[in-house]
Simulated assay, not measured.
Amino acid sequence: MTFTLPPYKQPDFTQPPLTDAPLARFVPVESAGVAPQNFHATSIYPEYFQLERGMWVMPEKSRMDCVVVRDGDTLHVVEPRRLAPGDLVCVGRREDGEDGIFVQTEPFGAVDGGAEKFAFRTRMTRESSFSIDYDELYSLLQYERDNGFILWVLGPAVVFDHDSREALARLVRQGYVQGLLAGNALATHDMEAAIHTTALGQGLYSKRSAPLGHYHHLDTLNEVRRAGSMPAAIESGLVRNGVMHAIHEKNIPYVLAGSIRDDGPMPEVMADCYAAQDAMRALVQQATTVIAMATQLHSIAVGNMTPSYTVTTHGVRPVFFYSVDMSEFVINKLANRGSLSARSILTNVQDFLVTTERGLRDWCREGPPPPPEE
């Protein structure tokens, strides 16, 4: 199974009803941070706006639930909180061309599926088989490592196990992690593991509680803050292994977003939630594949700011989004984004990481396996 990007199919604006569509309307903002009445809210899909007769323009960098601001012949997708008086905001809520707005819901072809109205196991559950999903993921990651930008969204559970922590660090060093979004807990417990070989006071391998183990993550935070930064803690030899060690070693960009729950936090954690959102979006805009796992709120937040497409030097291509979790709620929340690019795998994330890292090693060594006969 060799990965090939699906081709982008641009809408045909020379055919009705789009030939008869009016120009898109733009209304100036009157109050900072307040969009005009009847503003158009963006989706995850490519969207086109007719600025002049026959001139349909698509914003290159989009995200869901924002507004479209016109600057000459260029369109920008902007969070409403950023609006300034005088900004020209698109208004109109019909998305089939009637308001000069066309939302393209199948830019890369229809989602695969049978024609039968009734079938068993049409939704992902704990009973689903994911063999083909793993093979598709290996093929995709091989391609993206050299041709895209792989962004991981991670919760602390990925470093609570010895094998999964090692597997994730190897994935970083092998080039399969090109950006990281997480919270304070991931970095804290990863560095706790490096210093104390525990996570939340339990042995990474044995899962036995260490004496006074509940102090370990607090002591870790204190020691890293005393060092002044995570890079300083690594350079001093305080932290000698782990995910964040590999991230800094490979100079991978990351954002640690703060929350009300944080202890410490680590010096690099961004306490301003909107500054963190801006930094996260900057990485999301580079992403061509997103893998979100073991962090419900972070996964949903990143899912909401990730479009189903991106524009590269080679044209429009899909953004692939994988959600990996044991919770069907999280999986369904993201899978229901309605995107061709959404994939879900219901499993223990520690097992997922170990399986994925091992599978990629086999893939590189032996090549893709032939498809089974059915």
Rank of each mutant, 00 (worst) to 15 (best):
4 T>Y: 03
4 T>V: 11
5 L>V: 09
11 P>F: 08
13 F>C: 05
23 L>S: 11
31 S>K: 15
36 P>R: 01
43 S>M: 09
45 Y>R: 04
45 Y>H: 15
49 F>G: 07
64 M>P: 00
65 D>E: 09
72 G>H: 01
73 D>I: 14
74 T>S: 10
76 H>Q: 13
80 P>W: 06
81 R>P: 02
82 R>G: 04
83 L>I: 13
92 G>L: 09
94 R>I: 11
95 E>K: 13
96 D>Y: 11
100 G>R: 03
104 Q>R: 01
105 T>C: 05
108 F>A: 04
109 G>A: 05
115 A>H: 06
116 E>Q: 13
119 A>V: 07
121 R>Q: 14
126 R>T: 15
128 S>I: 08
137 L>V: 08
137 L>M: 15
141 L>V: 11
144 E>T: 09
145 R>F: 12
147 N>Y: 09
147 N>F: 10
150 I>M: 14
152 W>N: 06
155 G>Q: 08
156 P>L: 03
157 A>R: 14
165 R>H: 08
166 E>D: 12
177 V>F: 05
179 G>D: 05
183 G>L: 03
192 E>M: 06
201 G>F: 06
202 Q>S: 10
217 H>Q: 07
218 L>I: 15
227 A>S: 12
242 G>C: 01
246 A>E: 07
247 I>N: 00
248 H>V: 01
259 S>D: 04
260 I>T: 06
264 G>F: 11
274 Y>M: 09
282 A>L: 07
283 L>A: 02
286 Q>Y: 02
287 A>V: 01
290 V>R: 00
297 L>T: 08
298 H>Y: 09
302 V>H: 02
303 G>Y: 04
304 N>F: 04
311 V>R: 11
327 S>T: 10
332 N>V: 02
338 G>P: 09
342 A>T: 15
347 T>C: 14
347 T>S: 12
353 L>R: 01
360 L>I: 11
363 W>I: 02
364 C>E: 10
365 R>L: 12
369 P>H: 04
372 P>Y: 08
374 E>A: 13
